[in-house]
Nucleic acid binder design. Structure first.
Lengths: 336, 336
DNA sequence: CTGAAAGCGCTTACAG
DNA sequence: CTGAAAGCGCTTACAG
């Protein structure tokens, strides 16, 4: 079906080398020849076969993106930033879902390496990274996003979860908040751990003793947020300020509040990691720690492109992007 | 760096043909030879180069996915379904963001064709489809998702927006609802049009005259939902039942309600297209029309795989998947 | 400025 | 059961 470079060469009465040069914008080609080739190209509706090109050139202009979940706001914003930046340089993005499994993550890595991707960006599924070394062995640059892993180091782009949480809690404490609860994730998850550490440290430094029964840990999903909030609010002396360590648990909390309106302390205040569409919806005053998600994606792409270019300066580079605190205190402020 | 089939052949003392056969699980290979090859493979850590393989075999085992927006829950769920099903058959997915532009959509299509993808799945960005014919000309199967386009027909997987809306509104009307408002999208968008038609037709058939000032149209984004709901609710005689034509406008509506609680008619009822994480949050009783989004993605993948297999039976096949109505009336029911 | 030719790493019909 | 060889569609040093 598709015309090949040979067909174009025949049609234009030149060699395939010449056609290749025209297609690749080689300068030293006479205008006349160039035009004849171009005519043949459009006559035959020729499109370059990048598979053949890649075999020769050893570059596929494609980058793999591995994530623990792909139907997830955080992930898709990262993906968007990645695709944006890659697209600007003519690269495309192959997305693989590791479904929270290190095993599948490894399989994904192998698949991508067989596909000869020029680079890989991964949001790690687990806390270990031994298997990720595969990429580097194959000399394919690998950039981590959102989480760091044990036993393996490479470039990474993320935020300082600990510091961001620390700052937010400190700010609230100095602003008069004294009774804190925490709805967190499992400690084997990197971000869950960092956020908890920041929280606890802030309380310590502010001289506020954490109360055991106010520190609850779930699984970063909606239901978990709902139930832990229920647990907190049904205690005889519930915390007045609740820090929620991720967006999905935050949704669960908002859900709980929207149903229990009557039984909620009137001075309840929420602080939550991540700022998404729904962070503004809660009718309870709140503070969100916003990650620059698009930027995380773009920076990761930038980094992988740099390494693909062969620039290995200051590898491994762990880049921590700044977060922002967004407050929803006055209802008239967050009308769109 | 990477060992090639030649290296393996040399190491094992066989021809490259034999190595290829072992790697591809050709049956007629003696166990002894097979073992020697396998040993060489693992010794050299050999991985097949699929670029070379594809050049020979004319198949890349990859499918392109083009969408008007990739940081969007609906899209990502489709993508998830697609990736799931493709993965089962050893195919991978290249994602391209058309950013709501037909021009970029066409560029994306060309890019994917140059990459020699075996098939393409697209959520169209615009209402016209002339440029999509490119794929079919190149004999690459193309499956549409969510929307149909003008001037171009091919396989598609979507829901019956008109019918689903019609049924929901009819059900509410026969249940006693009499005062309907509508928050819709622009009529040039396929889904916006179908949903509006279903709504109007249902009112007609129920003998409820639609009131002009209760029919508002926005742009399918959050802010738009907020403002149109504000407009409706500030009218002297606001509608008691509001149908919202997409999820993002629904979020805007929920936001408005959560801030204006006092000024909302106590008998307000919402009906909305799509059922997502937040559909359950509203404290107003509501009905969601749920699309089987994962299934849409899986079916689209299934269809494109079928066409890749060369099975062209009953092309073009427009598959309309069933929707479900989900009601959130009793607060105790939607506790997770 | 242009072409002949080698070669990228595989697969596969053909022959034995 | 195994190998020699052609060829997939390009690019690119080399020569002119």
């Amino acid at each position: 079906m598709g015309a090949t470079i040979k067909d174009v060469a025949r049609q234009a009465g030149v060699s395939t080398a010449t056609v290749s040069r025209v297609v690749n914008n080689d300068h030293r080609i006479s205008p006349a020849t160039r035009q004849r080739v171009l005519d043949a190209v459009s006559l035959l509706n020729y499109k370059v076969n990048t598979v053949a090109r890649s075999l020769k050139s050893k570059r596929t202009l494609s980058v793999g993106l591995i994530a623990p979940e792909i139907d997830n706001v955080f992930f898709m914003r990262v993906a968007r930033g990645v695709e944006d930046r890659l697209g600007e340089e003519g690269y495309s993005m192959i997305v693989v879902n590791a479904r929270e499994s290190e095993l599948r993550e490894e399989a994904a890595l192998e698949l991508l390496l067989e596909k000869q991707v020029d680079g890989i960006i991964a949001i790690p599924s687990g806390s270990r990274g031994d298997h990720l070394a595969l990429a580097l062995q194959a000399r394919v640059p690998l950039v981590l996003v959102d989480r760091l892993v044990e036993n393996f180091t490479t470039d990474a782009v993320l935020v300082d979860n600990r510091e961001a949480t620390y700052r937010a809690i400190t700010r609230l404490a100095t602003g008069g908040h004294r009774s804190f609860g925490f709805i967190g994730g499992q400690p084997h998850i990197f971000t869950a751990r960092e956020r908890y550490q920041g929280f606890i440290q802030a309380l310590r430094d502010q001289g506020i003793p954490p109360r055991e029964e106010h520190l609850l840990f779930g699984d970063f999903h909606i239901e978990s947020g709902y139930h832990l909030m229920k647990n907190l609010m049904e205690q005889p002396d519930p915390p007045r300020t609740v820090m929620i360590a991720n967006y999905f648990m935050h949704i669960g909390v908002i859900r709980y509040i929207s149903f229990q309106r009557g039984q909620i302390p009137p001075d309840l205040y929420l602080a939550a990691f991540d700022n998404m569409e729904f962070s503004a919806v809660s009718s309870v005053p709140s503070l969100s720690i916003a990650q620059p998600i698009d930027q995380i994606g773009r920076h990761a792409a930038e980094r992988v492109l740099q390494r693909i270019q062969g620039d290995n300066e200051n590898w491994p580079c762990i880049e921590r992007l700044p977060t922002k605190e967004i407050t929803y205190n006055d209802q008239h402020h967050h009308q769109p």
